[in-house]
């Protein structure tokens, strides 16, 4: 039996967001009335960088946005570097 591979944390965040959106008040454009001050930007500590190595997959240098739009992904050879902003 092959153990289930742990899903990438970014995926977990997206999964949770989906769960949350299912419960968020129906009038998404007029959500629960919130105070006028906009939520301040997340502190810089919320930024994160992650390096992943994908053995055996050798590709040329590449750069792009991750499918969920949550990170910039730069690939060089087997290296994949993800620059993510969690506090978006």
């Amino acid at each position: 039996m092959t153990p289930e591979l742990p899903r990438h944390a970014g995926r977990l965040q997206d999964d949770l967001l989906q769960d949350l959106r299912a419960v968020v008040p129906a009038h998404a454009s007029v959500p629960v009335p919130v105070a006028s001050a906009p939520p301040p930007p997340p502190p810089p500590s919320a930024a994160a960088m992650e390096v992943r190595v994908t053995p055996g997959i050798w590709t040329g240098p590449s750069a792009g946005v991750s499918p969920d739009g949550a990170a910039i992904v730069v690939g060089v050879g087997p290296l994949q570097i993800r620059f993510g902003l969690y506090g978006r």
Binding site: L12, Q13, L16, L17, L20, R21, A48, G87
Partner: peptide, 10 residues
């Protein structure tokens, strides 16, 4: 962080 990130998206 993941929980905060997901909440930010709501």
């Amino acid at each position: 962080r993941d929980v905060a990130g997901a909440l930010a998206g709501t």
